[in-house]
Every structure is written in C-alpha cells, then in structure tokens.
Simulated assay, not measured.
Amino acid sequence: MILKLIRKEILIRKKFLLSVVFYGLIAILASILGGPRLIEVVYIFSIIVFTYFFITTGAEIESKKNTGVIFASLPLRKREIVTAKYITAALLPLYSLLIMTVLGFAFTTLWAGIKFIGLNDSLIALLSTWFFLGLALPIIFIFSSTTARVINYIILFTIMFGPFERYIRATQPLDWEPILWFLAVFVFLLLSWLFSVWVYQKQDL
C-alpha cells in the first residue's frame, strides 16, 4: 500500500518533476550571470529550493482536491500516508542531485567558467535538504497549505543563509565527519516522522 501511495505522490507532482530539468538549467544560467559567488552555491541552493517547491506545491494540490477526505474513506492507515510522503520527499533530493550533476557536467564541458558539482557540495545539499524536510513536513501536517508555505519559506532561507550552511561549506568532507552528520540527520528525520504521524493521527479529516 505504501508503494501505491508513493506512486500517487509522484503522479500528482509529475509536471514539477519534469520541469526540474528546465529549472536547473535556468539556475545554472543565472549563476553564470551572477558571478563566482553564485556559481559556488548554485548546486546546493537549487536542490534545496526544488525540494521546497516539491512539498509545498504537492500540499496545495492535495488541499484543492481535498485528498484528506478521500483518504478517510479508504482503508488506509494514517501512518502509511505519512510514511509515503516522507519517503517521496526524501528521494527528491537524490533525483535533483542527479539532474544537477548531469546539467553541471554538460556546462563544464561547454564552458570552463562553472565548476562541476563536487563531493562536498553533494553531501551538503543532501544533508541540508533532509534537515529542511525534517522541519518542513510536520508543518505541512499541522497548518493549512498557505500558512505552511510561508513558514517553510522562512525556514528555507534560514537554512540556506544560516550558520549551519556557512559552517559546513567552509570545511572539507573529512573535517566534518559526514557519516556522523548523516546519522544525526537520519535520527532527526525519524523523530520528525514520528511527530508527523502523531499529529496526523490526532486530526479529524
């Protein structure tokens, strides 16, 4: 059943997933025009921003279609619904990373002015995005789609320009123990999932 729910999550966002290639292209072109400082962070910021739009647009679509009422009429456990959303959202950064890697390779081949995404950028992008999801997804379950979009927008920019991001970007992969960071973020996501399940189970659809 969870696999079917994941498929549903992907299908309602199909247009967005296809448009990631276009948005990634625009992001890289904008970074070229913006200069070295923007080129330095284009991969990381793009992946986080893509994830933000993925979860917020999905929440708005579900709100308009009133899927909560539909789910209530089906033999689904709320834990399964939450789990499907978390798995789908957690997979998106990997998909976005793949797209940005391919685009980055194409651009570095054609133009030497932009760097290819490195290991450090990839790790930071994944960690930052999964950390963001751990904060953003419970908010989507608590608030309306419009309110959640605003709150998550604030969280998004806090992570993108906050001390967490600056600290990791200033270090090398071996200096900041990526395995420990991934473990910490995984535990944080797990706690976030448990909280979202608790919140969703308390709601009357």
Rank of each mutant, 00 (worst) to 15 (best):
29 L>E: 13
37 R>Q: 08
138 P>Y: 11
128 S>I: 10
23 Y>E: 13
163 P>R: 15
112 A>L: 06
91 L>W: 00
187 V>A: 10
190 L>C: 15
92 L>Y: 00
24 G>I: 02
116 F>T: 02
38 L>C: 07
95 Y>I: 10
78 K>F: 06
84 A>E: 01
151 I>V: 15
114 I>H: 01
43 Y>V: 03
204 D>N: 00
47 I>A: 03
134 G>W: 01
7 R>W: 04
109 T>D: 12
129 T>W: 01
179 I>P: 12
184 A>N: 11
35 G>E: 00
12 I>D: 01
108 T>Y: 02
10 I>Q: 00
142 I>K: 05
169 R>E: 09
120 N>C: 12
113 G>R: 10
13 R>S: 14
76 L>I: 10
72 A>W: 01
57 T>W: 10
10 I>A: 05
63 S>M: 09
168 I>A: 09
180 L>V: 15
200 Y>R: 04
20 V>L: 11
184 A>F: 14
187 V>N: 03
13 R>N: 14
160 M>K: 07
35 G>C: 00
3 L>K: 02
63 S>K: 12
155 I>P: 01
42 V>E: 03
150 V>K: 06
187 V>L: 10
104 G>K: 02
189 L>C: 08
181 W>G: 08
171 T>S: 15
185 V>L: 12
147 T>M: 07
57 T>H: 10
179 I>A: 15
50 F>E: 07
190 L>I: 12
27 A>K: 07
158 T>C: 04
29 L>T: 13
130 W>F: 11
180 L>S: 15
171 T>F: 14
180 L>P: 10
150 V>W: 04
85 K>E: 04
79 R>D: 09
56 T>M: 14
64 K>F: 10
125 A>Q: 05
78 K>T: 04
76 L>R: 08
21 V>N: 11
187 V>F: 00
77 R>H: 08
9 E>F: 05
186 F>H: 13
74 L>Y: 00
149 R>Q: 08
141 F>I: 14
172 Q>Y: 02
56 T>L: 13
75 P>M: 13
105 F>S: 15
52 Y>F: 13
60 E>A: 15
5 L>G: 06
84 A>K: 04
104 G>V: 03
126 L>H: 02
17 L>Q: 04
48 I>C: 10
147 T>P: 01
1 M>F: 11
132 F>G: 03
65 K>N: 15
202 K>G: 13
48 I>F: 03
23 Y>S: 11
72 A>Q: 04
139 I>C: 07
63 S>L: 07
152 N>G: 06
50 F>R: 05
82 V>N: 01
78 K>G: 10
109 T>A: 15
59 A>S: 12
130 W>H: 12
154 I>M: 12
19 S>Q: 06
161 F>P: 06
60 E>D: 15
